[in-house]
Design a protein around this nucleic acid. Structure first.
Lengths: 231, 231
DNA sequence: TCAGATCTTTGCATTGTCGCAAACTGGAGA
DNA sequence: TCTCCAGTTTGCGACAATGCAAAGATCTGA
């Protein structure tokens, strides 16, 4: 593991408002790891030995159903926390975390949670706010799944991904990590076939450009219209 | 508002592990209110002036979509907290809370949140654990909506309601508050017609007994089989 | 006790989405 | 450069669930 500088953390939301000495202290307790694309950072029901900060890359949080289907619960982007089971009173992780691209994470032992929270109340507040945001966001997803049709959900998923992880290119906004039709179907509760049909038709219309594990949003407003269509 | 005794709180999960003096202190800061069935306890986007403990009754937490559809996010049972926006760093409530039966609530001003949390760390921990449980539960609902068919979701909803709020009767387990076909459709993302068809058929088979706004679970294991059917 | 409102049931036509199958494509590794 | 394989596309038939419509049941308040 390499030496890391406190300035790395200073601009990230979980650490906003923390003093330089707090940042140094937290950094001193952390260890960094590399996780190549496709590898697990942690697994569901596994003892929650650590919590993590994603320094670089993207992580998929995935749940498995008893009959082997996968559902993507959320994507974690660079600078976000993950695996903070201790913060919500759990001894095990509630889902799997898989690197969606090559990742670098900072890991703290869960046993240090109480000490860290006590020493850096601002970090605790930031964390609880984030948990709350995730709760509200997940509730919004329930509403979406309960009321919107597949076409709208897929449109919404793509617009959201582009907004959260997009990188500007000459064609439009490119989703910054490899993502398959299957992945999108697992985010939106449909099949890869239906996603493929939708993306093809949007591609034909020129609203997106899509290739193998690659989606570029060309005319975002068209998809946003679809996503929020009254009917 | 009437005098309340600390023993009222002692057995409730949010206050477990708190000392008698802590309970007295918290009770002293609270005010109690009655909310007749159908009235709002708070509304979405409203300034989160208070947080609440449900002392008696049942509360529906509801979100509205832009085109006027309703989704029931969760039911709150007696003894649970609600409206704890401050705990998750929010200034407004993220949903509506409506009394599903006549209710009695205890209310604390949100401005007292920081003081209370600082004075009673056990209460804070319990609250964050509860937020975590709700997050995980909501995620499970996303998985359910994304992978299961309507019949399974409705079966699951009824079994869950019976488990969480059920009262034993001679026929079986009665869901303890008035609940319509429409309500169940808003919990499971379907239509009242489909729910009605399903309940009718289960009634015919003798698995449930159902009347106007009333459902009794007679053969719970049959519904549980349905809910977890591999196919 | 009656009238009106609310909730529930049920038949029928329609359709959005799936499941299956087969062909196609682009990239990685030998 | 060739081969293989994971990922993608597309046609077609099937069906779960919806939408619409109308009638029936149950409760409430005058």
């Amino acid at each position: 593991m390499s030496r890391l500088d406190a300035s790395l953390l200073a601009d990230l939301p979980p650490f906003s408002g923390l003093s330089k000495s707090s940042l140094d202290d937290m950094l001193a307790r952390a260890v960094s790891f590399r996780h190549p694309k496709g590898t697990h950072i942690f697994r569901e029901d596994e003892d929650a030995h650590s919590f993590f900060l994603l320094l670089d890359g993207y992580v998929r949080v995935v749940k498995l159903t008893p009959d082997g289907e996968q559902v993507i619960v959320r994507y974690i982007a660079t600078g976000e926390l993950l695996g903070i089971a201790k913060a919500i009173g759990r001894e095990t992780y509630p889902a799997n975390a898989v690197a969606a691209a090559d990742c670098v994470v900072l890991a703290w032992p869960s046993s240090a949670w109480e000490t860290i929270v006590a020493a850096h109340p601002g970090f605790a507040t930031n964390t609880y706010t984030m948990v709350g945001n995730r709760l509200v966001g997940t509730q919004d997803r329930v509403v979406e799944l309960a009321t919107e049709r597949v076409e709208q959900r897929v449109a919404n998923a793509i617009v959201s991904l582009a907004r959260e992880t997009g990188r500007k290119t000459e064609d439009g906004i490119l989703i910054d990590f490899p993502i398959s039709r299957q992945d999108i179907s697992e985010m939106t509760g449909t099949t890869l076939h239906t996603v493929s049909r939708l993306l093809s038709s949007w591609d034909t219309k020129g609203w997106i450009k899509s290739g193998r594990q690659k989606i570029t949003l060309v005319e975002g407003h068209k998809l946003m219209m679809l996503a929020s269509a009254r009917d």
